[in-house]
């Protein structure tokens, strides 16, 4: 198949950047989207041009490193699919595809399509854990956890931290990401002890980093590769109010 690509090129964080046009042909529809970019880069390198920088690593949808806007959609046209799991059979011969970095002021561009999502790490560092040191754990069966509870915790814990929720949100909110971690931990008996401190610290960090507020458009869940539920956000709000109420 043949494609016209309009790709965001930006040398570094301070460069202004612009869309550049590239043409590719003889593409195999079974290629992944990133393999299509590999093919473009092979050609650019041989021509002596700078290859397009993009984030990726595991290429099986779990590391959370890949992610670009494809025709304005985070991770492209398929629901609940990372960029690396998207294949060219989802496009038509002759298409023009716009490829841009994830959109958020909080995710500065390193180069081209590659972005800095360290704000997510800082949210986790501020409380996204159970405070246990190595060696302190009681036997794993000491506290039974009902099947449904652990499955629900898993659903929240499945977040891969890719940032598509932020990129797709008109407010640039990290509510889905943050609430997924809060729900994962507070659902489990081990995580209940420090629930009040956790929610306050994580929400505070989220605000300090400059992420926008959630206005319940629910666009985030649609783009989320793991289909993390917006109900996590409701739980986060509940936890926040609970913590604030108990403060008094």
């Amino acid at each position: 198949m043949k494609l016209t690509l309009k790709i965001w090129r930006q040398k570094n964080q301070t460069d202004t950047g612009s869309l550049q046009e590239y043409k590719l042909d003889q593409l195999n529809p079974h290629m992944s989207f990133l393999e299509m970019l590999d093919t473009l880069n092979e050609q650019l390198i041989i021509k002596g041009d700078d290859p397009v920088a993009f984030d990726h690593d595991c290429r099986e949808g779990i590391c959370g490193q890949c992610g670009v806007m494809i025709n304005g959609m985070a991770h492209g046209p398929l629901p609940h699919t990372t960029t690396c799991q998207l294949h060219m059979r989802s496009f038509n011969d002759g298409d023009t595809i716009y490829i841009e970095p994830f959109r958020s002021e909080i995710f500065p561009i390193r180069k081209d399509l590659s972005i800095d999502r360290s704000a997510f790490d800082r949210i986790i560092a501020s409380g996204g854990y159970i405070s246990t040191n190595t060696g302190q754990a009681p036997d794993a069966l000491a506290i039974p956890i009902a099947h449904e509870v652990v499955e629900a915790a898993f659903d929240s814990a499945a977040c891969i931290g890719c940032g598509a929720c932020v990129a797709t949100c008109k407010n640039g909110s990290a509510a889905l990401f943050t609430s997924a971690k809060i729900s994962h931990l507070v659902l489990l008996p081990q995580g209940k002890e420090e629930r009040a401190a956790r929610i306050k610290n994580m929400v505070q960090t989220m605000d300090k980093e400059g992420f926008g507020h959630c206005t319940n458009t629910e666009a985030c869940q649609v783009e989320c590769p793991q289909n993390i539920s917006v109900l996590n956000i409701a739980r986060m709000n509940y936890e926040f109010i609970r913590a604030k109420a108990l403060e008094k």
Binding site: A140, L141, P144, H147, V150, E151
Partner: peptide, 22 residues
Amino acid sequence: LNLIDQAVAQGVPFGREYGGYL
């Protein structure tokens, strides 16, 4: 043996049976 204890304490959601056991 210790690893499973450690992971559960950290909040790793290992699969469980309906009674709550691993």
